[in-house]
Design a protein around this nucleic acid. Structure first.
Length: 340
DNA sequence: AAGCCAGTCAACCGCGCTTTT
DNA sequence: TAAAAGCGCGGTTGACTGGCT
């Protein structure tokens, strides 16, 4: 079945935004909000623009607290390590970089960071793991497990996911059901399975709600980046959530290269109730928390990943078809996971 | 000065998912 | 329950810019 266009293509302006249009949009949203309806917004605001275009302009450029300009070294590292963990899930990555948008990060990665990592000579050969459209649907809704053949096809990313935990490659592919609570999921207390991994958690949280950002606890020693799970905040991709969020986020621990990412960021936008619940859960189960599996990423190995990517992207696709794949798919948002 | 080229980034497109009717 | 509407995402495109010849 075809899909109706979101707006009358003939009656909307395309291309770069003028300062006047920016001002109109900004003023309207600051006065009235989006009204929960981007499609109707341009008409109300007196703009001859597609609703999607307005949304994008607001999220990527006009909304408060947007950070433009150079990425810092530790932002680089966050991007790299998360890319290694979850691939090109830019919105999730953006959620860890306050003030940065997914579009920004995507552009930065494609134009600079990739080359920075690889060196100009190797850059041309490098490409992030990519899938064709029909495969993306699997990718997006999947729990990409660190030791999954999908990410490590035939040892394609050797030693990359060298965490002590996560799914063990030898484990048989089997259906598993997500625990009913995030806590159970995080702590791996459900069904006796090991902690599903940071990337799985990312998928779970992101899939469950865009307002529930991944929980990240990082411990850094030299170049090692450790993803665990601890905390939650909100996606910076959510243009409306960020400016209005001032919740205390003291539970957050996010340390990278000596920089501590505490509750200082203004866009931590966890619902306070959820946050309290979460904190309570942590208190209740410190012991289980200690058992959290962690993934260890070697920064240098990210380069290796990129070097291998161009030769493994085909294998990534192929790997999904193999029996025994450790890739788990998150089915809808019902919390049920089956191994694909 | 003019043309070419590569890099950058804002914006568009189309798809899947979720929500509403 | 199905269809429609809307949202959000990642991939891609194209305009712009600066450097080089």
């Amino acid at each position: 079945m075809g899909r109706a266009p979101c707006c009358d293509k003939n009656n909307v302006k395309k291309g770069p935004w003028s300062p006047e249009e920016d001002a109109k949009l900004k003023e309207f949203i600051e006065k009235h909000g989006t009204g929960g309806n981007w499609i109707a917004l341009p008409q109300k605001a007196g703009l001859r623009r597609c609703g999607k275009s307005c949304r994008l302009r607001w999220l990527n450029y006009l909304r408060p607290n947007i950070k433009h300009g150079e990425f810092t070294e530790h932002e680089d590292r966050i991007i790299c390590s998360m890319f290694a963990s979850i691939g090109s899930r830019w919105s999730i990555i953006a959620s860890q970089l306050p003030g940065r948008t997914d579009n920004d990060i995507k552009n930065y990665w494609n134009t600079k960071l990739k080359k920075k990592l690889l060196g100009s000579s190797a850059a041309a050969a490098a490409a992030p793991p990519r899938m064709q459209r029909h495969q993306q649907s699997h990718h997006r809704s999947s729990l990409l497990l660190p030791n999954s053949p999908s990410l490590n096809p035939g040892g394609g990313y050797p030693g990359f996911f060298s965490g002590a935990g996560g799914f063990h490659p030898q484990e048989p592919a089997m259906p598993l059901t997500l625990p009913t609570t995030t806590q159970e999921f995080m702590l791996g207390t459900h069904s006796g399975h090991p902690m599903v991994s940071a990337s799985a958690l990312l998928n779970h949280l992101h899939g469950a709600s865009h307002h529930h950002q991944l929980l990240v606890k990082e411990e850094i020693s030299s170049n090692m980046i450790v993803f665990g799970s601890d905390q939650q905040s909100c996606s910076s991709s959510d243009g409306l959530a960020a400016p209005h969020s001032h919740h205390h986020n003291g539970n957050r621990e996010f340390i990278l290269d000596g920089y501590s990412y505490g509750g200082g960021y203004g866009n931590s936008c966890i619902d306070q109730v959820d946050n309290d619940k979460l904190f309570q859960h942590h208190q209740q189960d410190d012991q289980a928390q200690e058992q959290q599996q962690q993934l260890v990423y070697n920064y240098d190995e990210i380069k290796q990943l990129l070097m291998n990517t161009s030769t493994t992207s085909n294998n990534i696709n192929a790997g999904q078809d193999h029996g025994g794949s450790m890739e788990a798919g998150l089915i809808g948002s019902q919390g049920k996971v089956t191994m694909m």
